[in-house]
């Protein structure tokens, strides 16, 4: 039985006078709760990092395939000095493996959006020949320099989102997106806890120097430690990860 002394609310009738103060307090609390949670959550979002697009760049260089395509710049711009090594991708979640492989070892002209985060430089190629085409000139792939076997701590990301096409472009909420990118042949990168030979990130390949193996997808965006061979290609570090050594960190 309801308490006869308590006010009884009927939806289609005016609220009982005894209940009005309670209802006004409820309404104010409701609006305050929504405003306060919106402010608290909205103003405490993590920093998405400094990666960003730097506008269209057109350079000439030599293509090298290291699982994924890179070019060693032979004729740069103000933004991209000669001698730089750029990782290549296409638009969306598409890599440039198929486009670049036939031009391996050749001099090409590369044009597209430069994405930059720290020492990580990636170019999102324009469509068709405008993005990548054979060019005149001389150049050779620099001799790779092996740096030995290393154990690194850090996170596997897709090189394009991490470089700034998405902000944030890392972390577990972004894991599925990163998997889609790498499955689309966008080069993955390993973000190291501390710089390795001066670089915070390394382009990631499988142990044989090919594309990233399945274990890499399963470890994507987790903080892990992993061993592998590091090789310097131009000014780019490449980490041939040994997937059997992946350990998830606490």
């Amino acid at each position: 039985m309801s308490d006869p002394k308590k006010p009884f609310f009927v939806g289609y009738l005016p609220a009982p006078p005894d209940l009005r103060l309670f209802l006004i307090v409820s309404i104010v609390s409701f609006v305050v709760i929504f405003g306060a949670t919106g402010l608290l959550i909205g103003s405490t979002q993590d920093d998405p990092g400094p990666g960003a697009g730097q506008g269209r760049q057109t350079v000439t260089g030599v293509v090298e395939m290291i699982g994924y395509p890179v070019i060693h710049v032979t004729q740069g711009t103000d933004r991209i000095p000669t001698g730089r090594t750029l990782i290549l991708s296409s638009g969306g979640k598409n890599g440039a493996v198929g486009r670049a492989a036939p031009l391996e070892g050749q001099v090409v002209q590369v044009s597209g959006l430069l994405l930059e985060r720290g020492e990580l430089d990636m170019v999102q190629l324009r469509g068709g020949n405008n993005g990548l085409q054979a060019a005149d000139g001389n150049g050779a792939v620099p001799r790779p320099k092996p740096l030995g076997r290393w154990k690194l701590a850090g996170e596997i990301c897709d090189g394009k989102c991490y470089a700034g096409i998405m902000r944030p472009g890392r972390g577990l909420a972004h894991r599925a997106c990163a998997n889609l990118c790498v499955a689309g042949e966008i080069p993955p990168v390993f973000v190291s806890s501390q710089p390795v030979e001066g670089s915070d990130f390394l382009m990631l390949t499988g142990p044989d120097g090919g594309v990233m193996p399945q274990e890499g997808y399963d470890a994507m965006a987790e903080y892990i430690s992993v061993e592998g061979e590091i090789t310097r290609h131009g000014d780019l570090l490449v980490f041939a990860m040994d997937p059997t050594t992946i350990e998830v960190l606490p």
Partner: peptide, 23 residues
């Protein structure tokens, strides 16, 4: 309540975040 939440989160909060580059 909902409009206030979304307005603060979407419109106001980005200005309060001291990030180098926006989300």
């Amino acid at each position: 309540g909902v409009a206030l939440f979304l307005w603060i989160f979407v419109e106001l909060a980005p200005g309060l975040l001291s990030h180098e580059r926006p989300i």
